[in-house]
């Protein structure tokens, strides 16, 4: 297990060094995007419209933060990850089109996303579910917010972060996926558990 401190923009070469079970911390810019923001970003791309921010080399964060407005400044109060599987239907295109290097969330992602990460060079960093204050404290400032018409949880929040993590690398750019490995092992363990409990199939 290696620990990497990465600064955005992250290059493809840099991200390819990172392997599953490593831990990364990110300093620089991360951008939140949930279901609606993913959908809109891909529509913009199709129409040849530019996104409000160039995502190349940045990290996208599956998160609907609790934010408060102090004067004219936004502050992130609590910002833990949301379940990533909902974004599985968009993420391969998202990685391909926008060249994000890190996807941050909880619960993992599937084969299609894993393949895109291998092909274009990106990793999935699992942030501990519920660790909302740990995340908020690494957010140094809210640089801006875009697409607020989608509602605060679904908007694009552009965060300036310092040592944002720990992110457990659960999918790397070499086709490895811890969540799929764990699921396989759990299926094997199931038989042992049934036996121990005296159950038949």
């Amino acid at each position: 297990m290696a620990v990497y401190k990465l600064k955005t923009p992250i290059s493809e070469e840099e991200i390819r060094k990172v392997k599953v079970n490593d831990v990364i911390y990110i300093t620089g810019t991360i951008v939140t995007a949930r279901d609606q923001a993913h959908r809109r970003a891909l529509e913009y791309f199709k129409q040849g419209k530019a996104l409000p921010i160039n995502l190349e080399g940045l990290a996208v964060f599956h998160c609907g933060p609790v934010v408060s407005k102090e004067g004219d400044k936004w502050v992130a109060v609590a910002a833990g990850p949301t379940t990533s599987t909902r974004m599985d239907i968009f993420e391969d295109e998202f990685i391909k089109n926008f060249k994000v290097r890190v996807v941050i969330g909880k619960g993992g992602m599937g084969k299609k996303t894993t393949d895109a990460m291998a092909k274009y060079g990106a990793v999935y960093g699992a942030f501990t579910g519920g660790a909302a204050i740990l995340a908020a404290k690494a957010i140094k400032s809210v640089k801006s917010v875009e697409w607020l018409d989608l509602g605060t949880p679904e908007a694009l929040w552009i965060f300036e972060v310092e040592d944002f993590g720990p992110l457990a690398v659960a999918i790397d750019s070499h086709g490895n996926n811890i969540f799929l490995d764990v699921a396989k092992k759990v299926e094997e363990n199931k038989q042992k558990i049934y036996q121990k409990l005296g159950l038949t199939q």
Binding site: T128, G130, A132, I133
Partner: peptide, 28 residues
């Protein structure tokens, strides 16, 4: 599990921070 330990450590750190800053332990 080393990865498992990183998660539990983050949980414990987060619990401490929530108490220190009197903030909800999870955004949900």
């Amino acid at each position: 599990s080393e990865t498992g330990r990183t998660q539990l450590k983050a949980i414990l750190d987060n619990i401490e921070l929530a108490e220190k800053y009197q903030a909800p332990v999870c955004q949900d």
